[in-house]
Design a protein around this nucleic acid. Sequence first.
DNA 1: CAAACTCCCTGTTAGC
DNA 2: TGCTAACAGGGAGTTT
Length: 270
Amino acid sequence: MPELPEVESTVRYLRKLLQGLRVAGVRIHWPRTIAKPSPTAFEQGLIGATIETISRRGKYVLISVSGPAGQLAWLIHLRMSGYLEVFDCAEPSRKHDRVVVTFAGGKELHFHDVRKFGRMWLVADAASVTQPLGAEPLDPSLSAEDFVKRIKSRRGRIKPLLLNQRVIAGIGNIYADESLWGARIHPLAAADTLPYQKLQALYHEIGAVLTRAIRMHGTDAGDRVVNGGRYKPRVYGREGKPCPRCKATIRKIVVGQRGTHYCPRCQPRR
DNA sequence: CAAACTCCCTGTTAGC
DNA sequence: TGCTAACAGGGAGTTT
């Protein structure tokens, strides 16, 4: 599932291939992919526009385009199973392609999304979509103190907090489990009672895990990611296998309706 | 405010 | 072999 590292990899990939191209056409195979505006308005707004900058906010791909109607923000969220692939020349739409954008010169961007949860927006201001997002975990301006403050100001268990995009943006189920394992924190720990040092460790662990995963182009956890990730999870998806640190058997529980993996020895409760 | 639940989706897998 | 049901999960929305 695409989380921050996978989205970041995708952004770097798109940046190399799409910058400066002019949109020639749009094929929408699954209209619900277009969250805003209507599919027709999306198509009309994009055609003739030029790709300027490509960046990331949380798990959103942000593409700024300039068209006859001025500056617009094209946002893409891959959700569960989406991925973006660029082709050098015309390519027929495949089975799970939901949106295909063609460019002058022949290149094409295919949005492939088996589960149909992925969404796109074309809006005047990206912030209208990304407004609710919390801090960027890799932004240098987010200090350990800020992070701890954000977490401590909330009640509730630590794992659902990490998954809450309004608190910290970009962390999904895999990297939440990986970070908590790294910081030796039990996923059910009450966030506001965790010692300062533990949360500081978590802050550093999140940065380290995400950075390492970006370097590996994300996780190879079944669902496909462009460029094929090589990040190997330590606990995620490793139920019943030995903890890489202490060899205890990794356990899987449900926290906030999400499968949660942890080491009962490294991450004791309380 | 927290947490549980429902919905959106389909490929994969377990069970029979 | 072939069927059905459970499951996975990001995020929005609703209910407890």
